[in-house]
Design a binder for these strands. Sequence first.
DNA 1: CGGCGTCAGTGACGCCCCGTCAGGATTTGA
DNA 2: TCAAATCCTGACGGGGCGTCACTGACGCCG
Lengths: 213, 213
Amino acid sequence: MSNIAYFPAMPPREDNRPGKRERTKTANRQAILDAARQVFGELGYDGATVRDIIRLTGLASGTFYNYYKSKEEVFDALADDGARRFRPLLRVEFEKATDFASFLRGAMRAYFDFLAAEHETWRVTRPAGETHPQVRATPEVTAVFGEVREAFERVLEREHAPPVDLDYLTAACIAVAREVGDKMLERRPMDTQGATAFAVGLILGGLPALPRP
Amino acid sequence: MSNIAYFPAMPPREDNRPGKRERTKTANRQAILDAARQVFGELGYDGATVRDIIRLTGLASGTFYNYYKSKEEVFDALADDGARRFRPLLRVEFEKATDFASFLRGAMRAYFDFLAAEHETWRVTRPAGETHPQVRATPEVTAVFGEVREAFERVLEREHAPPVDLDYLTAACIAVAREVGDKMLERRPMDTQGATAFAVGLILGGLPALPRP
DNA sequence: CGGCGTCAGTGACGCCCCGTCAGGATTTGA
DNA sequence: TCAAATCCTGACGGGGCGTCACTGACGCCG
């Protein structure tokens, strides 16, 4: 909301912290990201303008463009941020997993819990009928998808499962997770366990019935 | 591209065709829809402007707003149009179906064929990286989803299948169809049969493994 | 026919948002 | 302490949007 704190006299810097320039830069980038999260939450994606976002930071409009090229790019950065925070959780599930079933269960559960937690801070208020645009294939999001695919591949190979169409399988799992997740968010009480049981049941049951390429 | 044909002398109208006013109106509405399809195909959704669309019809900019409120609304109308054309195909599959398995197979196949056919006329050229916005829940699209749900309900009940979470099941099936369909479109040759086999196998196999609410 | 009320088409206009850029303030390194 | 580098600032030009007063064609009725 306000500018960066201003120190009348520069305090001595014995550590090797980055200089003030660098610090303001990361602070500004983060401030814009936070403001964007809030504005998108309140006005929806379409309703939000670059000026709405930058106004919340107290910076000048031109400054926005030093950090992001457009509204789309901030939105993508938010998606990237989410993916970056989810990625380690996914990795943990992969480490813990002993077979495909346990990995899938862990990953699904992690995703639904993550989704529910995000929901609290993310979709604060939303104009009725407004919808977020499709989450685009940003680098970090693509990386998460790739990691899912790779984890599937390894874990299936490890247990000598018959070959499947990995691209379709990955796409289908992510699709089910997304869509069931969305429906879950609309229900009260929010039942991440139920959603997990459903998604895992469907895919684990379906796996042996898939056509062999 | 051009204005409506102009007849120097009004031909006698013995039938009960609607008057010229009515005919121009439907013609204009259709012309705008066609122009929108083309422009969205060439410039992508974000790149397209209302003026681009209306220019292709030869009408004046103000006229656009006699038919649609905004670019979003034309896009929704296009989605509605697709849904309206797909709906009877779905209904035929329901009539033909003898059980859940045959209905699902028929519906999936119908969807993938439909998708492939649309792909030819719809995504003519597309700027790389551009993506269409999420297809919103327009009336006709919602109706199709509802019809899928209802068909599931009836056909499952008819064969005395154990109860399932219909909302989740419908959402999951549609999600799988969409995502596997997207992947299918990227492959050459386009294999609607393979996609159908995959999606149907996954869901039919998964169905008995679902948790019972 | 012919005149008239209605209704859709027209395009210029004002509004708002966007992205840029020259000028100024602050930090950095010497 | 000074000059160079950095980047913040906000005014500005550009462009798309949606509106509205005007116009001409259509359809109705005498």
